[in-house]
Structure formats: C-alpha cells, structure tokens
Simulated scan of single mutants.
Amino acid sequence: MSRKPSFANLRDRTIAEPAASPAPVGGQGATTGPASRQGRKQVAGFFSPEMSFAMHTLARRQGRSLQALMAEAFNDVLRKHGESPIGD
C-alpha cells in the first residue's frame, strides 16, 4: 500500500507568483456574477435540518424553487407587519 506524500518537504520552497487567471467565460466578471443575479442581493439564514428538509420537500412537491417559496414567505411577513409585498 502506498503512503501519502509528506508536505514537510514543501515547507522550504519559495512561493512562486500566481499565474494570471484566465478571462471569465461569457464576459462575466468575478464581481458581476450571472445575469440572473444582477440588481439582486442575497438574503440567507441558518435553519434546522428538519426545516431545510421540509422546505425542500415542499418546493419539490409544488414544482417551485426554494427561492420562490422564500419570496412568498417574506412577502407574507411584510403583509403581516403592514408593509407592501415586494413581489419576487
């Protein structure tokens, strides 16, 4: 059985300058992202595994995306607190 290589011999090597990264594919820069995300901001949260499973299951059952269900939930919260729903 072969042994895993030791990284100890890499410790004394000099670090070479990183090569220039190739141009992004499709004209999309690293900071711009896909066109579908233009003008949008990420909203994220941490939930229990049970909540995650329930939401993914519901989305799959309804043939909708998790993002669409979250938008619906956020709009419901806005309505509940007297704010106008945003839509998407």
Rank of each mutant, 00 (worst) to 15 (best):
M1Y: 04
R3N: 03
R3E: 08
K4D: 09
P5K: 14
S6D: 14
L10F: 11
L10D: 10
L10P: 14
R11M: 10
R13Q: 13
R13V: 14
T14I: 15
A16C: 09
E17Q: 15
P18G: 07
P18Y: 14
A19Q: 13
S21P: 06
S21M: 13
A23I: 12
P24T: 08
P24W: 12
V25K: 15
V25F: 13
G26L: 12
G26E: 15
G27V: 12
Q28T: 12
G29S: 09
G29H: 15
A30W: 13
T32L: 11
T32C: 07
P34G: 02
Q38P: 08
R40H: 02
K41L: 02
K41F: 03
Q42K: 11
V43N: 00
V43D: 10
A44H: 06
F46T: 03
A54Y: 00
A54S: 00
M55L: 08
M55N: 09
L58V: 07
A59K: 05
A59R: 06
Q62Y: 07
Q62F: 02
G63F: 03
R64N: 01
L66S: 13
Q67I: 07
A68M: 08
E72L: 03
E72Q: 11
N75G: 04
N75W: 00
L78R: 09
K80R: 04
H81T: 02
H81C: 01
H81D: 09
G82D: 02
E83A: 08
S84Q: 01
P85E: 04
I86F: 04
